[in-house]
Design a protein around this nucleic acid. Structure first.
Lengths: 190, 190
DNA sequence: CTGTTTACCGAACATTCGGTCAGTTGACAA
DNA sequence: TTGTCAACTGACCGAATGTTCGGTAAACAG
């Protein structure tokens, strides 16, 4: 049953892997073809071009994140609990869709595709930032650090996971999320 | 006394700025020339080429970090205190040399220059990792999270500062370091 | 004024880039 | 056996890439 060749999905999968190794701009269609074991032109049979490949990958990351913040558990309840849930789910999505999210986190805004992704990402950030602000207003997070700064540092920590996490080696995503929450919420000092 | 033109230093300064905006691979010598207000060829009068520009920038970041971990305060005393000092200084260096460190944190390893920088960076990481492990052995950091993981998350948070910090707007580097330490060491929950 | 040096320009270089297209291949259906 | 068609190749395109080079205007030194 195994088809010998590729399809749009397998091309995207391989492409995203190479994009993350070399960087999007540092990856040529020739590099991509080599990784797929075909010629450059074969890629264009399955996929319209390089930038669309990027676009599809970024959408995959963003769709995951937006689906999450659309969930009831991100929208009702005590802000600190919603925040905890969002952090936990963010780590999970990062782990599930690792290469796609990694790509998203490295976007510069060099093309319409990238600019669009950046805008959606900022929208996500605004949602989280509002959550932190609410939790601070509730008196559930320390008042001596600016909520905007808390948001950036907290999600800086979460997002940094993309730089080193390997699903094969590292522990389960759940354990990872647990570690993040322990450190960020309760601190690493005994 | 002010010369009208550029010199190697001013070219590097501008170049690093553009590299960070567009990404190193996403920046052409033409982009660079435009930012400098000269032609492409003029750049080669001041500087040997694109990759050397990168190399000099990366060295500037790495030299700062290695100078720090060479300091006495990173090498003697209680591990947890040394760790705190290293975090504080890391934030300071990141703020001082922001564009250079930002560039370093985005390196992929696509050229000998980048591979060399990556290796030096890993050496820095090993130093910090050893510090955290020592502090854990001393019983000064929570024992329920793997020290290697603590290192990555802690410095993931520190390094994420490069993605948004603007010396003009954001508060002082000292205040920033203080916020990082509060969250990471004592947690953001009240 | 003359000669030299500094800082640059414009044109061109070879190479690589993303992308196109006419044609080939091989599995399968009739 | 023949015809179809999805999957692919190889040759090629114009544009963009990093870099080189011959020339030159302006500042300066004698």
């Amino acid at each position: 049953m195994k088809k010998r060749g590729h399809d749009p999905e397998s091309v995207l999968h391989t492409a995203v892997g190479v994009f993350n190794e070399r960087g999007y701009d540092g990856t040529s269609m020739e590099d991509l073809a080599r990784a797929l074991g075909v010629t450059k032109s074969a890629i264009y049979y399955h996929v319209p071009g390089k930038e669309q490949l990027l676009g599809r990958a970024l959408d995959r990351a963003l769709d995951g994140l937006f689906a999450m913040i659309g969930d009831e558990r991100a929208r009702s309840g005590r802000a600190i609990d919603r925040l905890e849930w969002v952090v936990r789910r963010s780590v999970a999505i990062l782990a599930e869709r690792l290469p796609y999210v990694t790509l998203l986190l490295r976007v510069h805004g060099n093309s319409p595709t990238e600019l669009g992704a950046l805008e959606r990402r900022r929208e996500f950030d605004r949602f989280v930032s509002a959550l932190v602000k609410e939790a601070a207003a509730d008196g559930d997070v320390r008042p001596d650090v600016d909520p905007a700064l808390v948001t950036r540092l907290l999600f800086g920590m979460v997002n940094s996971i993309a730089e080193w996490y390997q699903p094969a080696r590292g522990g389960s995503p759940d354990a990872l999320a647990e570690a993040v929450l322990k450190i960020a919420f309760d601190g690493l000092r005994v």
